[in-house]
Design a protein around this nucleic acid. Structure first.
Lengths: 332, 332
DNA sequence: GTGAAAGCGCTAACAC
DNA sequence: GTGTTAGCGCTTTCAC
């Protein structure tokens, strides 16, 4: 069997209590004893049992995260940033995916709670049907919604200010000379889709010409293709600027425009949202609204850390302003 | 405080032992009692404490995974597949990243071991300097190397048959009429880079013409750009087929060729390796060797499950044959 | 500053 | 089938 703290204590000639204190920080232990314990531990190749420590101290030093999927580069980058941030605080990250299924999501949350994570980060996969499980989790441990949020608020949330992001895209397009605009986005099934659509509706009046073409589907490349084809049906009415709900859609739109010989950004300018890695690899490179992922992750972890540290700030809602990244798909 | 199994037992009018048995499968418990326990648990909203169970039963039902990074879509997809596979077996996934730093990697492995994961999956970030930590981990729990492996073997490994993959790319290019080839890859700093390079050297003789141009850098887009520029220096000697060590490099090569007005696949054909999501979005879409990620993940978890189940197959090395995906960057 | 002792909540022997 | 009992390895009072 593996070496326990008891053996370390014996070898160091102290009690387990002192050994424990020495091994965890060493505060309140005479330096000489501290050294002896540390040496004994090293010599015995002692490996602390975090499970036992967790049972007794009632903290696992771990946080759980539930995202719809990881293969989506957006969530992947988010998870990576959270992992780094958590590791920095000595915490482990328990990862699970909901696959966009609220029932799976509920099960994953329960499992994480059973494992006694100290805190939870969740990207709710549905703005309504995720509610029960996420609120229940929030009753037990500090929980923060990341990126997406439940309808009508409730609980802590860290995300991006979508309206401001879309606004900056619209301003940029109008400033670059677009006189007519269209929006290609997703049906508002989640909070981001909703906020981006709202953002477009709010910002559209800045444009002098027609802005009433709003095509809603989902956040996919295929939808981008189809929406572009629809806009191309009447070549004369092709808008001068197309605001897309995310980069994937924008990539689909760009592609379809290229296939049809439409000059981008000459005839039509296109913007995306997220700044996924491929955005700058597209032809032409995509002007887009960059999600400040590192900041989001850091803020989410900070929110939890505050609450773990005993801070009683029950409902913290943080919307970070995103930044427009201008590339070749729009004129400067 | 939260409800314990003791209270559930009391309410159900049985001993904690019976409650425990009923709650975990219910084998060897009279159905009537089982029902009463389950009902009591439901009524009290009992939440089992997996930490306590883990301490006593010496299994945490969790596996740890260490990858260089998650924002790389290749690893992200791998992690996602592993997560799904682990969740299917009721296991949690503790995720950490090494950021390509063997010291960080060693620390992460130690931390996962302290947390008493039942098994480990690691993508060694360095074929030499990862050895000590990974071998040490392998002494304590079933450990499998995924994708990359340590130099000279040792331990279980699940990955792709890189040689076979490169071979299929070369055969395809030659079959499509390429008479001269070049290889643009990474310096063999990791096992995949090495195997792909070996694969090219082994397969090159299949091509009738010159195949001795081998450019080695790293697995980046920038290196693809630079390598392509180098090949373009003497336009006349531009090879008819360029085999790239991964998709990212291939994307860089494609881009540079396009900028210089070289017709792909007319004048030059290009192949990649991995089949990252963007491969099919490139212009032209990239012919590439697809990594069977789901299979890799499933096989890795299966390898561990076998060992956890008591199977004593110490050194399982599984190389899965990848599949060539033919797209527009080569002629059919 | 240190030690003795009491659990954290659960499972696994071992009796019955 | 069921109950009693004894810990898993650690941290944390509480005395000294």
């Amino acid at each position: 069997m593996s070496v326990t703290i008891k053996e370390v204590a014996e070898r160091a000639g102290v009690s387990v209590a002192t050994a424990s204190r020495a091994l965890s920080g060493g505060r309140g232990v005479r330096p000489a004893n501290r050294e002896r314990v540390l040496r004994a531990a090293r010599e015995l190749e002692y490996e602390p049992n975090a499970v036992a420590a967790a049972l007794r101290s009632r903290t696992t030093n771990s946080v759980g995260i539930v995202v719809p999927r990881i293969s989506n580069p957006f969530f992947a980058t988010l998870v990576e940033a959270v992992e780094r941030e958590a590791a920095r605080g000595g915490r482990g990250l328990l990862l699970s995916t909901s696959r966009y299924d609220p029932e799976v999501e509920a099960g994953q949350l329960k499992s994480l709670l059973d494992r006694r994570v100290d805190a939870l980060i969740a990207v709710p996969c549905h703005s309504e049907r995720s509610r029960a499980a996420i609120e229940a989790a929030g009753q037990r441990v500090p929980t923060v919604q990341l990126d997406l949020c439940l309808d009508g608020g409730g609980g802590s949330w860290v995300g991006v200010d979508s309206e401001a992001g879309i606004l900056s895209a619209v301003e940029h397009l109008v400033g670059a000379g677009a006189r007519t605009l269209a929006y290609v986005g997703s049906e508002p099934t989640d909070s981001s889709a909703q906020a981006r659509l709202d953002g477009y509706r709010g910002a559209a009046p800045l444009c002098p010409g027609g802005t009433d073409r709003v095509l809603l589907g989902d956040f996919s490349l295929e939808w981008g293709h189809r929406a572009a084809r629809r806009l191309l049906e009447n070549r004369r009415e092709l808008p001068e600027g197309i605001v897309c709900g995310n980069d994937t859609i924008a990539l689909g739109v760009l592609r379809e425009l290229a296939r049809n010989g439409v000059d981008v950004p000459g005839r039509v300018m296109v913007t995306g949202f997220d700044d996924i890695p491929f955005a700058e690899l597209a032809e032409p490179p995509l002007t887009t609204v960059r999600q400040p992922l590192e900041q989001l992750a850091a803020e989410a972890v900070r929110t939890l850390a505050t609450r773990l540290g005993g801070g009683e700030e029950p409902h913290r809602r943080v919307a970070i302003a995103p930044e427009l990244v201008v590339r070749g798909s729009t004129r400067a």
